[in-house]
Amino acid sequence: MADFQANTRPFAELDRAGRTRRLRRLAEAALTAYDVPVARLTPLAHGQNTAFRIDGADGHRYVLRVQRPDGPGTAQVRAEMTWLAALNRDTGLVVPRPVPTRENDLVTVVADPAVPEPRTCVLCHWVDGRFVEERLSAPQLYAVGEFAARLHRHGARMNGLDRGRVDDLTGFGRTQVDGFSAAVVERAVALAGGDERIREAVARARAVRAGLGYGADVFGLVHGDLRQENYLVHRGRVGVIDFDDCGFGHYAYDLAVALDALGHLPQREALREALLEGYRSVLPATATTDPEVLGAFAELRRVQLRLR
């Protein structure tokens, strides 16, 4: 009886484990679209999306991501995979390498009766490495800075992909022509319980964006979530994963996210300077690494996370 009830309960009423079990079956169905011999499928940490490690009978490892229903749509996920494929083709950066389906598509859409809506799924080769976390060193952050600059240099050439702006204030803002419009800000202030500091943060970010402009030297396709949880180290090289939040924005936004995530570490000042030095070694753009610019985007990012 318990098993029957677990299988018939509405998806929204399930806990994380229950949802993962349902999505595992959907993931198994998604894998049939790929020419990959599957030996084992293991759930990974459940974030906004649900991911599974795939151990292939061919000796290779992969990650299958099942997209959340309220995240980027199929066309936008395909654009994300298009950028990753281009990065693998054009650069030596360590990023996930998409696996095409048998029909040579970079995504597959799968439905399962036990899941309320079809889900977009993608398969990528596993990225080796470890998350350093509190043991981060200045040389590692220098390498992260170099990586970010090379990523931005490539992102400047990727115009036309179907990705939104990373700096839109809220989900509602992403549906508007101007993600900082008066209507967007009013909703954000209300969502934050009337906190007027939201207006100040938006005004500061708006002024910084206007000052930077939108030339390819300061604006393009960026990662959008360059936190410690998304970069890892393997044999001295930095790799970056989870491009789910990638989109168009100022390069300083990526750096602000990375720098703000270091605030809890005792060595944060040395790490911050190392990251900026690494970035400037590739792209010596003083506007992108200006402290006031980075501070404005860091404040905006904190507001965005608060309003999610």
Rank of each mutant, 00 (worst) to 15 (best):
M1R: 15
A6L: 07
R9E: 14
P10C: 13
A12I: 13
R16S: 15
R21Q: 15
R25G: 10
A27H: 07
A27D: 10
A30F: 09
L31M: 07
L31E: 01
D35Q: 15
T42C: 07
P43N: 04
P43D: 06
H46R: 15
G47Q: 01
Q48C: 13
D55A: 09
G56M: 05
D58H: 06
D58C: 03
H60L: 08
Y62T: 04
V66D: 00
Q67R: 13
Q67D: 11
R68T: 14
P72T: 11
P72K: 14
A75Q: 10
A75F: 09
A75Y: 08
Q76D: 03
A86V: 02
A86S: 12
R89V: 02
D90M: 12
V94Y: 00
R97M: 04
P100F: 03
R102S: 08
R102H: 09
R102V: 06
E103L: 10
N104M: 15
N104W: 13
D105S: 15
V107M: 02
V107F: 00
A111I: 12
D112R: 11
P113W: 07
A114W: 06
P116I: 13
P118A: 12
P118S: 09
R119A: 09
V127W: 07
E134P: 15
E134I: 10
E134W: 08
L141M: 14
Y142M: 02
Y142W: 13
V144T: 03
A148C: 05
A149N: 05
L151P: 02
R153E: 12
G155R: 05
L161R: 07
R163H: 07
G164N: 07
R165C: 04
D168R: 12
R174N: 09
Q176A: 11
F180L: 10
A188P: 03
A190Y: 14
A192G: 03
G194R: 05
D195F: 07
R204Y: 12
R204I: 03
A205E: 04
R206W: 10
A207N: 11
A207R: 10
A210S: 09
A216Q: 11
A216Y: 08
D217Q: 09
V218E: 01
V218S: 00
V222N: 01
V222T: 04
G224A: 04
L226S: 02
E229G: 14
N230P: 01
Y231M: 06
V233S: 02
H234S: 12
H234L: 08
V240L: 03
I241A: 00
F243Y: 08
F243D: 00
D245P: 06
D245Q: 04
C246N: 07
F248D: 05
H250V: 05
L255N: 03
A256D: 02
A261K: 05
G263M: 11
P266H: 08
P266V: 05
Q267V: 09
Q267N: 11
E269L: 15
G278L: 00
R280Y: 12
R280E: 08
R280S: 09
V282R: 13
A285N: 15
A287D: 03
T288Y: 01
T288K: 00
D290H: 04
A296L: 05
F297G: 00
A298P: 01
R302F: 09
V303T: 14
L305N: 14
L307Q: 06
R308A: 13
